[in-house]
């Protein structure tokens, strides 16, 4: 059993750690609230744009819209969105594992890595990485993310990859974030309830081609932006939870150690008392 002094010293050092984790928890909590608000606010926009594109898709001609072109899949591109820093619990590990498993099922895969964690991991594995984007700001603007979209679209349009996927951690709620892999390109309209809905006779201005050639790239940009927002909200939520757990664990540890220290103190006092008592007894007898 460690000495009483040793125990007290450990309690002090754990208290310091607890202060740090509590501070990080509070910082993460405030960033989390902002990031969650941002992701929830932008979801309707993305969903609406997706619905619209679904409705417009029958008017599209894959010949003139290269982003709709379906090809035989020889190589897929994966945009892997991780965090720059750790301390987010198992979030990055889970996502990278899911992504690699997915990549293995494909004939061949290359990556666009967003976030230092993913960049480092892919480098270690010597995976083919076409572009790296470290240091996306905590409150990203679409300017920050459009670069990523542009690179990804370029890969697809030039035929370097035949399908393009987004791998990110979808924000469900503060306690739940899900590794998600979603196809971005080619854009294929969802088939659901297509038959019972009559295709509307849309008037296009200026014309269907121009309109679609604006809507599709826009959707791609928005989808990438949304992905980054999802990841940010997930990261801060995971970080907040991880730091709260650490703070709680430190508290438990402090309680345990304080109890041990008190026990050690008590047994020391008892021992001293015994020694004094037996000493006095010995004197009295003599």
């Amino acid at each position: 059993m460690p000495s009483e002094r040793e125990l007290r010293r450990r309690v002090r050092s754990i208290k310091n750690i607890q202060q740090v984790t509590r501070a990080m928890q509070l910082v993460a909590a405030s960033k989390m609230r902002r990031a969650q608000a941002a992701v929830l606010a932008s979801r309707p926009y993305e969903e609406r744009l997706r619905t619209i594109l679904n409705e417009l898709a029958p008017y599209a001609d894959p010949e003139t819209s290269p982003l709709l072109a379906r090809r035989e899949v020889r190589r897929v591109g994966i945009v892997l969105v991780t965090t720059d820093r750790g301390l987010v619990g198992p979030m990055n590990v889970n996502l990278i594992r899911a992504t690699l498993r997915f990549a293995q099922q494909q004939p061949a895969a290359s990556f666009v890595a967003v976030g230092r964690k993913g960049i480092n991991q892919l480098r270690r594995l010597r995976a083919p990485v076409t572009a790296e984007f470290p240091g996306i700001p905590d409150r990203p603007s679409s300017t920050d993310t459009n670069v990523i979209a542009r690179v990804a679209v370029e890969e697809f349009v030039t035929g370097k990859v035949d399908e393009l996927y987004l791998a990110f951690t979808r924000f469900v709620n503060t306690l739940r974030q899900e590794p998600t892999i979603r196809r971005l390109l080619p854009f294929v309209p969802e088939e659901e309830d297509r038959d019972d809905q009559p295709v509307l006779q849309y008037i296009f201005e200026p014309d269907p081609e121009t309109v679609l050639n604006e809507v599709i790239p826009r959707l791609i940009e928005v989808a990438v932006f949304q992905t980054i927002l999802e990841s940010k909200a997930s990261a801060f939520s995971a970080q907040m939870v991880a730091m709260r757990n650490a703070t709680d664990a430190a508290g438990d540890l402090i309680d345990d150690l304080t109890l041990s220290a008190n026990k050690a103190r008590q047994s020391r006092i008892t021992k001293e008392m015994l020694e004094i008592a037996s000493g006095a007894e010995a004197l009295g007898k003599g």
Partner: peptide, 18 residues
């Protein structure tokens, strides 16, 4: 709209424009 201002009243025909 990119081609000029358009006014929309109820029961307009389906229109999609930039």
């Amino acid at each position: 709209a990119t081609e000029g201002y358009v006014g929309i009243l109820p029961h307009h025909a389906p229109l999609f424009t930039t």
